[in-house]
Amino acid sequence: MVFLTVTNLLRVRGPDEIWRKRRIFRLAAAFIGRRRNCYSVAVRNVHRALVYATKARKLKKEDMKELWNTRITAACDQHNISAFALKEGLDRSNIMLDRKSLSDLAAWEPRTFECLAAVAQKKLELDGFIDGADKKHPTGVNLNLKDVMLETWLKEKK
């Protein structure tokens, strides 16, 4: 930097302050108003945004884990096996797939997931594993929840 007077040279605290402020202003570039232009306001808002970003990374992992479990459970219900029994059967068969892989197979490759469920079920039968969940065989009829509830309501009214 070039200073035309000595007073301007004395007022600047050096290059460290310039770069420190520049880093904050770059992080605050998307903000609106004084949150973007005024350093004292920008610093507070940038720190708060960074805290939220840190928390959001952990929440994102939890949300994805919950989504994967939901997909696996729904696919297991279609094939008459509990999610625990599926995982146990795959582990005993030395098929090491994590939640993400299983959920992707359940969503995008249903036939492959069906084969994995069959392998797990067969292995559990051979090992004599007893699952605590009482699963019934599917009827092959797609039930609409509204219709089922309507029939129940009509029976109560009679």
Score class of each variant (00 low, 15 high):
43 V>A: 07
1 M>K: 10
69 N>I: 07
143 L>Y: 07
149 M>V: 12
142 N>Y: 10
77 D>G: 12
111 R>N: 08
12 V>W: 04
88 E>K: 15
102 L>I: 08
123 K>S: 08
41 V>S: 02
81 I>M: 02
97 L>A: 07
131 D>S: 15
110 P>H: 06
158 K>W: 01
141 V>D: 05
75 A>K: 02
85 A>W: 00
97 L>R: 08
10 L>Q: 10
57 R>G: 12
49 A>R: 09
109 E>T: 12
27 L>I: 05
28 A>T: 06
53 A>K: 11
25 F>V: 08
62 E>W: 02
35 R>A: 05
74 A>W: 03
107 A>M: 09
75 A>W: 00
10 L>F: 03
35 R>K: 15
26 R>M: 12
28 A>G: 04
97 L>N: 02
139 T>L: 10
19 W>Q: 07
69 N>M: 14
128 G>W: 04
108 W>H: 14
102 L>E: 01
143 L>I: 13
120 A>L: 07
111 R>W: 02
97 L>E: 03
156 E>W: 07
94 N>S: 12
138 P>T: 15
15 P>Q: 13
138 P>F: 02
35 R>N: 11
129 F>H: 11
46 V>S: 05
67 L>K: 12
47 H>E: 09
131 D>F: 00
139 T>W: 01
59 L>W: 00
59 L>K: 11
53 A>G: 12
26 R>L: 14
61 K>E: 10
60 K>M: 08
112 T>L: 11
47 H>Y: 05
46 V>N: 04
99 R>P: 00
146 K>P: 00
42 A>L: 03
46 V>Y: 01
150 L>N: 13
148 V>Y: 05
110 P>I: 12
39 Y>C: 07
136 K>F: 06
135 K>D: 04
50 L>R: 14
147 D>Y: 09
30 A>D: 10
14 G>R: 08
35 R>L: 03
93 S>N: 12
146 K>V: 15
11 R>H: 03
25 F>Q: 04
24 I>W: 00
125 E>M: 11
108 W>P: 00
119 V>L: 11
57 R>T: 11
119 V>C: 05
29 A>S: 14
56 A>V: 05
128 G>T: 11
23 R>I: 09
26 R>W: 01
46 V>T: 08
68 W>C: 07
24 I>A: 03
127 D>A: 15
2 V>H: 08
12 V>L: 05
19 W>Y: 08
111 R>K: 12
75 A>H: 02
97 L>Q: 08
129 F>R: 09
151 E>H: 13
41 V>K: 05
107 A>W: 02
103 S>M: 09
75 A>R: 02
52 Y>S: 09
147 D>M: 12
11 R>A: 13
138 P>V: 13
39 Y>H: 13
41 V>Y: 00
112 T>D: 09
61 K>G: 10
69 N>Q: 13
16 D>L: 09
68 W>D: 05
94 N>Q: 13
72 I>M: 02
87 K>S: 10
139 T>H: 06
152 T>Y: 07
131 D>T: 14
93 S>K: 11
127 D>M: 11
102 L>A: 05
81 I>T: 04
11 R>Y: 00
4 L>R: 08
55 K>N: 11
